[in-house]
């Protein structure tokens, strides 16, 4: 089945945070109240009960110009090759047939491996249920022919949901338009990053201005752990058991051959 993607166009976002509220509403998540931090951003980061946030990022690069205020809707990127899926010891993370990265919460044990393997550190621990949660791309809505709650509620059409190829075309047109209309660094994010993200961003500036990693990579310890330590190293344990069993047999056979050992062991 063709990939279905969420597209977020920064240039159309007014940071009303309706998406944040709609997400809470649909997923029936309780409010998480954090103390005021001196800006409009409600939460420092996603958390166990907050799948999506709108970041308010301030830049003062050009002293002559005003403060540059960059908004960014932040949530699970639904990677094509999710690191969280590789590390999950319960194999409870999977990709569905249209590209959403999903979690089977019945099997989640709250170990948080996925949380730290994620290049964006998105999945978060929910203490009250001892599980790690994240955005589901509202797969249950999409499968009923609806759009995700955040997209449904977006008043400016900054969020759009649909066929990935169509949205990619649209994104490229938007970037072209933005580049000639005062945003020369406008770019698409999620086309090639990490082999592709099922979440597309139209950015008005380079990704680092939006607190996004310019060239995101799965942290090096994770593939070393998953591709070398996990599959191969463990064989040392059966080897030790086998060696001991061999010795157990041969010592006793040889003892019979050479005559019993002296009482204190081998003399």
């Amino acid at each position: 089945m063709a990939r279905k993607t969420n597209l977020y166009d920064v240039s159309k976002c007014i940071a009303c945070r309706a998406c944040q509220v709609a997400c809470k509403d649909w997923n029936q998540l309780p409010a998480v109240i954090e103390p005021f931090k001196g800006n409009y951003q409600t939460h420092k980061d996603t958390n166990g009960d907050t799948y999506t946030i709108v970041k308010f990022i301030e830049h003062e690069d050009d002293p002559a110009a005003d403060v540059q205020w960059n908004f960014l809707k932040y949530q699970c990127m639904h990677c094509f090759e999710p690191a969280c899926m590789d590390v999950c010891p319960r194999k409870c993370i999977y990709i569905n047939d249209w590209g959403a990265v999903l979690k089977d919460y019945d099997n989640c044990i709250g170990c948080q491996y996925c949380s730290y393997a994620c290049p964006f550190h998105i999945p978060k621990y929910r203490k009250r249920q001892d599980i790690v949660t994240k955005c589901t791309l509202c797969y249950e809505r999409v499968e009923e022919g609806l759009t995700p709650a955040c997209v449904r509620t977006c008043p400016t059409d900054a969020l759009q949901f649909g066929d990935r190829d169509e949205l990619m075309q649209y994104a490229e047109e938007r970037v072209k338009f933005l580049r000639v209309n005062g945003f020369p660094n406008a770019t698409i994010y999620g086309k090639f990053e990490l082999g592709g993200l099922n979440m597309l961003y139209v950015l008005t500036d380079s990704p680092d201005k939006f607190d996004l990693p310019v060239d995101p990579k799965v942290p090096g310890q994770i593939p070393f752990w998953q591709n070398w330590v996990q599959p191969y190293l463990g064989w040392l344990i059966p080897l030790a058991l086998l060696g001991s069993a061999t010795s157990f047999v041969t010592t006793r056979i040889l003892a019979n051959k050479h005559g019993e050992h002296g009482e204190g062991g081998h003399e």
């Binding site: 590390v87 491996y113 730290y116 393997a117 942290p219 310890q221 994770i222 070393f224 752990w225 330590v229 996990q230 190293l233 463990g234 040392l236 344990i237 080897l239 030790a240 058991l241 060696g243 001991s244 010795s247 157990f248 010592t251 006793r252 003892a255 050992h261 062991g265 081998h266």
Partner: peptide, 29 residues
């Protein structure tokens, strides 16, 4: 992130040694 592979590597080596130690400290004549 470093702690995960460290825990696994240390576990495997420790268990290897414990298997050998358990055998040598008891059933080895």
């Amino acid at each position: 992130r470093v702690a995960y592979p460290t825990h696994d590597i240390a576990m495997v080596f420790a268990t290897f040694m414990v298997c050998m130690h358990g055998y040598l400290g008891s059933f080895h004549p």
